[in-house]
Design a binder for these strands. Sequence first.
DNA 1: CTAACTTATGGAACATGTTCGACAAGTCTG
DNA 2: CAGACTTGTCGAACATGTTCCATAAGTTAG
Lengths: 221, 221
Amino acid sequence: MTQDATTGRMGRPARTSRDEILRAARIVIDRDGWQKLTIRALGKELGVGAATIYHHVRDREDLLIQLLVEHAGRSIDVSLPEEPEARILAAAVAIRDTLAALPWATEVLATDGFLARLGGRAVQMVEAIVATAIAAGASQEDAVALFRNIWYLTVGEIQVRARTDSRPEARDARASRFADLDAEATPALASIGEQWVAWAAHDTYADGVASIIAGTLRRSG
Amino acid sequence: MTQDATTGRMGRPARTSRDEILRAARIVIDRDGWQKLTIRALGKELGVGAATIYHHVRDREDLLIQLLVEHAGRSIDVSLPEEPEARILAAAVAIRDTLAALPWATEVLATDGFLARLGGRAVQMVEAIVATAIAAGASQEDAVALFRNIWYLTVGEIQVRARTDSRPEARDARASRFADLDAEATPALASIGEQWVAWAAHDTYADGVASIIAGTLRRSG
DNA sequence: CTAACTTATGGAACATGTTCGACAAGTCTG
DNA sequence: CAGACTTGTCGAACATGTTCCATAAGTTAG
């Protein structure tokens, strides 16, 4: 990785910069789709060897996160209502919607502290959730727990959704699988049967978050 | 993939069976750790070429799921309390604990309908959640929504936990990142500061699930 | 101006999941 | 029993992320 610029500059001058790499990555994504964003393709776009990229970016994950930093920093909606539960919910939904719209986020978001790495408005959303919970009577620790449970739900929802509908065979297999269930051993599932698939398409994320909020605030306040 | 055995058997007899592959996979995992379970290593263990494995197993994901089927089918705890909310919570915790104990589950669980593929007691836990919710007054659709939100939370929790502590640099980076936050823009996060890391180590999964349960049942019943 | 130093670059190599095509090894039909 | 047919096996190949190392291209000290 490139050294810090505080010391006197030395060594061979770089032909490539981190910014150029990110710009090229965006071009490739816009033109070919993000699935085509491989290190080698990126190198070709820049007219540079693949190995060179590793001098400016730690690894592919680092690259994807850098790419998210801008989008997440800019495009998160910031108009939050005042009422505490609605405010927290709105912040969570904003985070979810933003990340779900950036498909490559799925590959890298499953980390504690991920939103902190995104910075900008992503962190403001975290602040909104935590600060609102505290203002509503939760302890700091409960506020952190609230955020983390919301974050887990968010990660799970995004990942399951992304994987489920990027995998046609999964959907098909699922449909028949619930029909095969034994009505003796699993009567409730059997009676739901094929409807599961239709209901599973509904968006229940907001309900889930609302429940977590209500549950946490009730316990605390 | 091997043909069904209903038609008269024909063709070259198989030297390898799906069961043998699974047995060998378990041996490799027990001996070398699951990270060493590569297709080629598995082939070597069986004295067979890597490509051969693909005649008995669709892909690596299929292999990992088959491996989970046994563990999840056998080892899930089944003594559930009677009281509805406690019963649903216990089922969720049993699923979480079982999957969290099988590290390679992380790679493949982010799918809708995943537990159905595991069969056995995994499905019984789903049945328990859905049936209990319905018995407690939820509609079928709300029961499905309840299960799905629990599932999302479970997937998120397992993945975040697994990735966070398999990645030492993530933990370190996180510690400093929260200290760097601007006290003007994010006062709540700044005042929590370093405590976040300690609190993030606490297990809040059960609280989250309990909130989702309470929230859903209150809306319905 | 030369030599030492430092950083950037990229070709080669490695591990991995996966696919392809040729070949092997049986069964079945006539 | 011979040829057709079917299925299993595996070497080779491909794409990908990543690391190593030799080399290039500057800056700076003498």
